[in-house]
Design a binder for these strands. Structure first.
Lengths: 200, 200
DNA sequence: AAATAATATTACTTTCGAGTATTATTGGGG
DNA sequence: CCCCAATAATACTCGAAAGTAATATTATTT
C-alpha cells in the first residue's frame, strides 16, 4: 500500500494542494466513478502514480473532500443560531442573513458543494446532520414565541433543507439568482405562506 | 451488437419482465455503476449473456427505467391540475389530494422512484419538467385569486419540488410517515407559513 | 558538494465487469 | 412427433482504470 503518511517538503505540500483542487473539480463535473485519477493529476502536470504519494486511494481523497465540506457547513450552521432576546421585527432579517451566508458559502465553493450535496453517497447523512442543527435552532425560536406553536418544527426543518437543496441546484449554482434574493424569497414564503389573506 | 429487437414468445416476455424488476431493485440499491448485469440476471435465475437477448446494453435498460418513471409521474401531475371554479375552502383539500397521490405513487414504486429522483443523472431534468408543470398549475390558481399576488410562483414551484424530494427521501421512503400526513403538513406550511400571527 | 530524503517517472500487474461467439437446449406450431 | 425459432448456457475477449514495483531525478541539509 502507498505511504502518504511520511513528512513532506514545500514542493510536496504544493502538489498535494493542487491535486485537491483539481480533484474537487473533477469529481464535481464527472461524479465519483467517471472521475479518473490520471485525469486529476494530469491537470496538475503530474503522472498518475504520483497521486499515490499523497493519497491512499481514490476513495480516500473523495472522503477528504466530503469531510471538508461537512465541517465547513457545520461551522456555518452553528454560527447562525440566533441569540436570545431578539426583537420580533428583527427576526426575519436575522433568518435572512443566515440563509444568505449559507448560499454565499455554496456559491463560493460550487464544486465542493456539488460534491457534498449531490454527488457523495454520504449526502443523505450530511443533510440529516444539517437538518438536526436547523431543527434545534427553529425549536428555540418557536418556544420563544416567534413561530406559531401548532407546527412540527422537525418537519419544517426537513422542508427548509429541501428548499435549500433544490434552490441551490436550480437557481444558485446556475447563476440565475443571488444569495440575497433567494434568502428573502424563502423567508417570505416560510413566514407568511401563500394564502391571499396574508397579502401585505 | 446484440439484437434484442426480434420477436418474443411468452417465455421471453416473462424473462424480460423479471429482468426489469430485478434491475429496478439493483439500480435502486447500488446505483448505476455498482449495479452488475450479472447480479441482476442471476436474481432471475439466468446467466449474464441472456441479458443481451432482451436489452442492448446496461445503459439501455437504465434509460428504460428512467423513462418509465418520468412518464408515470407526468401523467400524475397532469391529472392534478385543478378544474376551474373551485370553492375557496375546497382549495386546500384539493391540493392535499394531489400531493397525496404523488406520495402514494412514490411509496408504491419505491425503487423506481429512487432511480428517477435520486440516482439518474437525468434527475435534474426530470425535476425541471415536474417543476414546470407545477408552476403552470400554481399560476392558474394564483390568477384565480386563490393565492396572494406578490409571490413568484416559479420560485414557489421550485420550493415545493424541493420539499417533496426531501420529504420523500427522509420521511416517506423510510416509512416514517404516510402520504396523507405529509400532504397535510405541506399544505399547511405553504398556505399559512410559520408566522405566529397565522395561528389558528 | 556529498549524502539523504523527497518527488516524480516508466513500465508493469491486477481486477472487474461489459459485451460477444459459439454451441446447447427447450417448447410450441405444423 | 418433429422442426425451427426462441431461449439459454459455456467459455471466451476486451478495455479501462486502480494501484504497485523499480528506478531516476530533484531538493535540502549538513
Amino acid at each position: 500500500m502507498a505511504r502518504p503518511g511520511r513528512r513532506m517538503g514545500a514542493v510536496g505540500e504544493k502538489s498535494r494542494e493542487l491535486i485537491i483542487t483539481a480533484a474537487t473539480r473533477e469529481f464535481s463535473q464527472h461524479g465519483y466513478h467517471k472521475a479518473k485519477i490520471s485525469s486529476i493529476v494530469s491537470k496538475v502536470g503530474l503522472t498518475q502514480p504520483s497521486f499515490y504519494l499523497y493519497f491512499e486511494s481514490k476513495e480516500a481523497i473523495f472522503k477528504e473532500l466530503e469531510n471538508l465540506f461537512q465541517s465547513r457547513l457545520q461551522d456555518l450552521t452553528k454560527k447562525s443560531r440566533l441569540g436570545v432576546g431578539i426583537h420580533f421585527n428583527e427576526l426575519s432579517t436575522r433568518i435572512r442573513e443566515s440563509l444568505k451566508n449559507i448560499f454565499e458559502f455554496f456559491l463560493e465553493n460550487k464544486d465542493l458543494t456539488r460534491i457534498g450535496l449531490f454527488i457523495s453517497p454520504e449526502s443523505k447523512q450530511i443533510k440529516e446532520k444539517f437538518t438536526i442543527q436547523i431543527t434545534e435552532n427553529l425549536l428555540a425560536e418557536q418556544s420563544a414565541g416567534y413561530f406559531r406553536s401548532n407546527v412540527d418544527m422537525a418537519f419544517v426543518a426537513e422542508s427548509l433543507v429541501g428548499v435549500i437543496m433544490q434552490i441551490t441546484e436550480s437557481l444558485l449554482l446556475s447563476g440565475q439568482k443571488d444569495p440575497e434574493n433567494l434568502a428573502a424569497q424563502i423567508v417570505d414564503l416560510f413566514l407568511y405562506g401563500l394564502s391571499s389573506s396574508s397579502e401585505k
